[in-house]
Write a protein that binds this DNA or RNA. Structure first.
Lengths: 211, 211
DNA sequence: ATATTATGACCGACCAGTCAGTCATAATTG
DNA sequence: CAATTATGACTGACTGGTCGGTCATAATAT
């Protein structure tokens, strides 16, 4: 009834389990045995799908950024006013966080940080040739075009778009991190509003005055 | 029966060594033997000063935040225009990073992330009862008074100062993180300028128009 | 349809390496 | 010499990865 081909679904189950384990315990403390257990398979089987712990983590890493890139790309793919796009990106980010946090897997979002940390550690640079800074710049580059667009159109101040994009995404990322830990003390909607208030108005060219 | 520190200087040396080791290898992979070696003492001696690895890390954690809090507090202690204070804080942050990065201890700044990560994990499971979110809010509270001041004085927009402070510090933190990894691709001065341009103008009440 | 054989996914006991923490001893100090 | 401090060899617990064996299913034969 159930055929047993080497199963893509099982591979996915392992990755999903690994996310939870690495998020909760870290790459170093997360145990293969726990991953296997959570995936509902034997420990040996894990090694039928991945050749090492680090390879599992690399898969998690890839998965994470691919989803992130796909999410943002899709979000701002349609032609749209640059201002609207920025608002969308901010709103989406907060909502994405809330979704992560409300999820039954309480601490899964920590994988975010673990990946960040491992990404920074240069030992990790080798694995699957994933360069963290390259991946990050890939993400900045999703945003840069519409920052450019806004500047071209004279809606945004004529600042260096490369640096502006960097600041926008980095700031958003920091806000996400802090929101994770302090979410109980702040109001999602208020944060959304104020974030947009500050960033948009900081970015928009004053319309009434020709400074 | 942890003996009292016999030699405060040696204790400091252990902490300094621990910072480098934990920064480079992480809490879990960093070895006591390495810390001892870097501190120029025997492994057993470490246990004369700290009763466990986690206790060492807790000391690093405390040390880090105390320095951070002291730095910012001192920076903005003098009476000063709120706008000037914000500019100071931004400039100081970038300069502090550059100082960390130019330091001979190449990767020491990673302790920043390691602390962050461990801080997030289960609110740092009891160790020394350090609550990470509490520490963070202690830091926000350094900034909040002058945000309040700026709002009272009608210089800043009348936004909720609690949320504004959160966003400011969180954003700054994120920018720091990204600056760490991508510093080679961006210009410190340009980032400083643009950061202030965006944040200050987003925060300042438009003076010419009475919307 | 049923028996026989081939396949490879699955498993977990085991091994070899690692490391936090201990403790018997050595060095140092007063 | 006694007390204090330093030390590193040692140990026990732990875990990543391996490997020989099992068994459900597929393929083939009758």
């Amino acid at each position: 009834m159930t055929p047993l081909p080497k199963d893509e679904a099982k591979r996915k189950r392992i990755i999903a389990a690994a996310i939870r384990v690495f998020a909760h315990d870290g790459l170093s403390n997360g145990k293969i045995a726990t991953i296997a257990e959570k995936a509902g398979i034997g420990k040996g089987t894990v090694y039928e799908y991945f050749s090492s712990k680090e390879e599992i983590f690399a898969a998690v890493f890839k998965d994470f950024f691919n989803q992130m890139i796909a999410g943002y790309t899709q979000l701002i793919d349609a032609p749209m006013d640059p201002v609207k796009k920025i608002e969308l990106v901010f709103d989406y980010s907060y909502d994405y966080l809330d979704q992560l946090l409300e999820d039954e897997h309480g601490q899964d979002w920590l994988i975010f940080l673990e990946i960040f940390l491992q990404g920074f550690r240069d030992e990790f640079k080798g694995i699957g040739k994933l360069s963290f800074s390259t991946v990050l710049r890939e993400i900045y580059n999703i945003f840069k075009p519409f920052v450019d667009e806004g500047i071209q159109a004279g809606v945004f101040k004529p600042l260096d778009s490369e640096h502006v994009t960097f600041i926008l995404f980095a700031a958003l990322d920091g806000i996400s991190l802090h929101y994770f830990i302090n979410r109980d003390h702040y109001d999602n909607e208020k944060l959304k509003t104020i974030t947009k208030e500050i960033f948009l108005n900081g970015l928009l060219k004053p319309q009434t005055e020709g400074a």
